[in-house]
Nucleic acid binder design. Structure first.
Lengths: 152, 152
DNA sequence: TATTGTTATACTCTATAACTATA
DNA sequence: TATAGTTATAGAGTATAACAATA
């Protein structure tokens, strides 16, 4: 009995997600241009998104958040240091661990990156005020994730 | 006059887009698992998304669609051929051009990929029927892009 | 002994330049 | 000459294994 409703609900959710997904894909070129303009590789962008200003992060916690190997994190942070966006600092208590923190330049780039990534695509601005409000009201009920990294 | 309404509208759009963006980011791990399960690299996934069953595509048109260099397209299609997902065929009229087409295996993998990528995240299923309908109704008014490629 | 981080190595992905073969 | 595609090469991004230093 609830069977039919359930199947129908699933179908609506599937179709809705497909539209969501495809709209996001359609806006990819806009984001690519932002990265190009800022001279950031996708990787650097993800790193800048993760590193919050003034908050030091251990290599280990970064690797975990990025879902990559620790050796990969070493390479990524090396690049960040070479381009002056972040630096490694010692942790007073434990001489094994290093804290990665944004430089002043990295903090500025991060702000620019967020501004660019959050720039609404023009199609969104063409929606009616009612549609926009409806969209926002539903989205508010969904969970979120901060960093504007590469999202395959 | 329209000034205030305009600024407010822009702010709503920006906030809405931020929520949209962050929800999509939050669902990335789910898509990563799909690729892992199918044994596909992000690259292969994009290629499978582009190649429609039975439709031959020239190397040049693929490079253009992927926004990459022709030599890169060569490498990507080489990989596809090695893993048996696609093959190159001659074009009768012009002996310079090659047509890339999905194999039977590639066609199956492509279908599995789409099924996985379009699998709605669980949070979407937890929305009320009214919210889901509202969401779909607005999304229907936005433009879309087919292929489920990597979307940074 | 266990943990933090790095180095060595190999494979994936990307672009630039030089090249082959058709047209 | 111009176009379709490839090869050679270099650099970006990733993981595995072996390692050094510290706990």
């Amino acid at each position: 009995m609830g069977d039919h409703r359930s199947a129908r609900r699933l179908a609506v959710a599937a179709e809705t997600w497909r539209q969501f997904f495809e709209f996001f894909m359609a806006t990819r070129p806009q984001r690519d241009r932002v990265l190009q303009r800022l001279g950031l590789r996708p990787n650097d962008a993800r790193a800048l998104g993760t590193l919050e200003p003034k908050v030091g992060r251990t290599m280990r916690s970064l690797a975990e958040e990025w879902g990559c190997d620790a050796s990969n994190a070493t390479w990524i942070v090396d690049r960040l240091e070479k381009s002056g966006l972040a630096e490694r600092r010692p942790l007073p208590g434990d001489r094994r661990v290093k804290l990665v923190v944004l430089t002043a330049l990295g903090t500025r780039r991060r702000a620019e990156l967020f501004r660019g990534m959050y720039e609404p695509p023009p199609e969104l601005l063409e929606l009616s005020a009612a549609d926009l409000d409806a969209l926002q009201s539903v989205l508010r009920k969904l969970p979120r994730s901060r960093p504007p990294g590469p999202a395959r």
